[in-house]
Design a protein around this nucleic acid. Structure first.
Lengths: 242, 242
DNA sequence: GGAGGGCGTTGACAGCTGTCAACGCGGTTT
DNA sequence: AAACCGCGTTGACAGCTGTCAACGCCCTCC
């Protein structure tokens, strides 16, 4: 396993197997076949698969689980630039160097697609690149132009699409995979702000969660409204903060 | 000219030819040949070439001038997701729909490369896509994790590389192309904050400008430091704000 | 069983940045 | 020549969000 390096220095590098993570829908397929096709393999939680700036010659596809791409500033500030679910590709390089760090947030199954350069001419890969470009631009708009509430609501909508287990929309339930810190690093916020927004949404009946990572969307319409153009003041009512 | 539509409703849709824009280095080549190769054409300032969500079948290359890509939220908030100089490609689509709005900030020369789908298998296009992906991820880190000062300093470093006219680094001078409002929409700030940061840098001797768009970098090292990890408090000294 | 650490929540407070307003400058229009 | 508009700058102020701190819960380890 060439590029698979354990990141013991990460703050959350404990509990290699999160018990609740196994109940996730995208992970159910993991328990069945150990290794299905040729280059498929299972990676445990909180592994760093690729390091930003490192050398890597292979392209990967996510088959199951959750993987995030991130960048670091010199003083440790982190930005998660993309959250990948089943089907997504990662491992793109510029000048042979990894664009971003890739780490698993759950047990994940990934497939090595071989030399990344060979896939440059693959239409499916090009299509995936363009989709990723679109997703990143949309996220840039979120980072630059949305309020904290809108950011958190948008994240919930996005993640519910990525990881929802049921086909019916109403009592939508999904596993969050990201910690509050991960959400903060994804949305350009702090843990405290993320926590406050989530609990406000909970009080207002938009969502519910008993376990911090087991999310239920109670009111998809209002949540989508909160994620979009809804003026934050209009939905907040009397509460001065929080 | 199929997708070339004038945007008269833009706030800065006046003065179709900005006098100072003609003195820019990347535009010098414009005055020589009216139309060089086959599908090359000149577009004047403040034109919207593509609309986000619109249909478009062609890929374009910037030959000269400055073009920005942007997205809009429903209530009018704008995020500029990329600033393109000579050499950059744009016009990528997902499901046949433009990913972003593309507008000129100066007189620009662009080249139509024909059907975008045909280029999906072009290695040079794939390489450009990956470079763009990298640039966008870096900008996401800026948007989510940098302070206002760091954002503005980063923008100056980036734009000086895009549009500098001299090879020597020291008295680096370049045309900004972006208005304060454009900078704000690029960096996720407001016009006022951008203006305050620029004028603080000017007072501190990092940069200089007589005309708002004619920038000179006086101290590239300190500017780069301000763009990176430099703790904002450490550089600010006594001044409570600004 | 107790200690310790990761993670999440909540409160108090501060401050960076947004909001609102006014003004100046340059160019165009009437 | 006056009026007007776009653009940039500056000041006063507010508030959204960050910072700091404390606490609780759960799990692991000793």
């Amino acid at each position: 396993m060439p590029p698979c390096i354990r990141n013991a220095d990460l703050p959350h590098a404990r509990n290699p197997i999160h018990s609740r993570a196994l109940s996730g829908p995208s992970l159910a397929s993991l328990s069945r076949p150990p290794r299905l096709p040729a280059r498929s393999r299972v990676v445990s939680e909180n592994f760093t698969l690729l390091f930003e700036g490192g050398r890597n010659r292979s392209l990967f596809r996510v088959l199951g689980g959750c993987i995030v791409l991130s960048q670091l500033l010199d003083d440790g500030r982190r930005q998660i630039t993309d959250v990948l679910g089943p089907g997504r590709l990662f491992g793109f390089t510029v000048d042979g160097r990894n664009i971003a760090t890739a780490e698993t947030l759950s047990i994940a199954r990934i497939e090595s697609l071989g030399d990344a350069e060979l896939h440059a001419t693959n239409p499916a890969v090009a299509s995936e690149l363009k989709t990723t470009l679109h997703r990143l631009q949309t996220h840039a708009t979120l980072l630059g132009r949305k309020t904290a509430s809108e950011k958190v609501a948008s994240a919930l909508v996005e993640l519910s699409r990525l990881f929802n287990r049921s086909r019916v929309p109403a009592p939508l339930s999904f596993h969050l995979h990201l910690t509050r810190a991960d959400l903060a690093d994804w949305l350009g916020l702090t843990v405290e702000t993320v926590s406050r927004c989530l609990n406000r949404f909970k009080r207002e009946g938009l969502i519910d969660f008993s376990h911090p990572k087991t999310m239920r969307v109670l009111d998809p319409e209002r949540l989508k409204a909160a994620a979009g153009l809804t003026r934050q003041r209009a939905t907040r009512g009397v509460h001065p903060q929080n």
